[in-house]
């Protein structure tokens, strides 16, 4: 841990022996990991290795899946997020999420962004809300493209714009963490490049965890990389180290294309 580029040494999430079951099937076999507070952490690994499942434990989205059980400890700022007294609704307000397929709500662009602040009561006046919408769209790099058509439907935007709209929507509720589940898999290369540039800006303010299929993307955007294989965390280290000199042979095989 001598890397000077690591922007913070604070730990956001502490995971100890996290196991996830779907019915009788164990998808994760006890994961231990510390996710840093600022910067981008990438989860890589072949399909079905459990990286997306693991991502969904951080905002308890697994709760919405029937028959899914999570055991072990997931601490956010030292607090157990699976504690019975903690409400997933408030947790999710602090941990935003961006999905594989852009999923704007069937509402206007403005209402897409204003939805979160409204349900959480974050603003007390129309002007304040307008300002928050603008700030969020600006931060997501979308403001200039949509400022003249805020009243039009969010579903009418292009795929890349939709994905940035979804990020703006998440930013608007003032989260501390943003989870991204293969956010660029449905985008073309240009939109992907824009998205990656955006992630680079956002990592100054948020803890970002990204699941990605593309090793190149992980190498480009992340500060730390975790390699998952068959429900196990194989290796977790600085991205540079993982891609140049991995300590585990299975990581080596994967990044060189021999497995996957």
């Amino acid at each position: 841990m001598s890397d000077i580029e690591s922007p913070s040494t604070d730990v956001k999430f502490t995971c100890r022996d996290v196991k996830v079951h779907y019915g009788d099937f164990e998808a994760l076999h006890g994961i231990d990991i510390d996710i840093p507070d600022r910067g981008v952490t990438a989860f890589i690994g072949p399909s079905g290795c459990g990286k997306s499942t693991f991502l969904r434990t951080f905002n308890r989205m697994n709760d919405t899946i029937e028959g899914c059980r999570v055991s072990g400890e997931v601490l956010m700022d030292g607090q157990d997020i699976y504690d019975k007294t903690l409400d997933p609704v408030l947790l999710r307000a602090q941990v935003g999420m961006v999905f594989q397929k852009p999923n704007p709500f069937p509402k206007s662009i403005y209402d897409n962004i204003a939805y979160g602040p409204r349900i959480h009561g974050l603003t007390s006046s129309k002007a304040e809300l307008d300002a928050l919408v603008e700030k969020s769209l600006r931060r997501a790099g979308l403001w200039d493209e949509v400022k003249d058509r805020l009243k039009l439907s969010g579903t009418g935007l292009s795929g890349g714009q939709q994905q940035r709209l979804v990020i703006a929507r998440a930013i608007a509720v003032s989260p501390q963490v943003i989870l991204m589940d293969e956010p660029a898999s449905a985008l073309d290369p240009i939109a992907t490049a824009k998205l990656e540039a955006l992630i680079d800006e956002l990592k100054e303010r948020y803890c970002i965890i990204i699941v990605t299929h593309s090793m190149a993307q992980a190498a480009r955007v992340s500060d730390k990389t975790a390699f998952f294989y068959m429900g196990d965390l194989i290796e977790f280290d600085d991205t540079e180290k993982i891609f140049t000199n991995p300590s585990n042979s299975r990581t080596q095989d994967y990044i060189t294309g021999r497995t996957g």
Partner: peptide, 20 residues
């Protein structure tokens, strides 16, 4: 346990009760 998020404020918890 101190929290820095607005979502952990007294206000948020009160509001949450109403929402539920």
């Amino acid at each position: 346990m101190e929290s820095k998020s607005i979502h952990n404020s007294e206000f948020a918890h009160k509001r949450l009760k109403k929402r539920y």
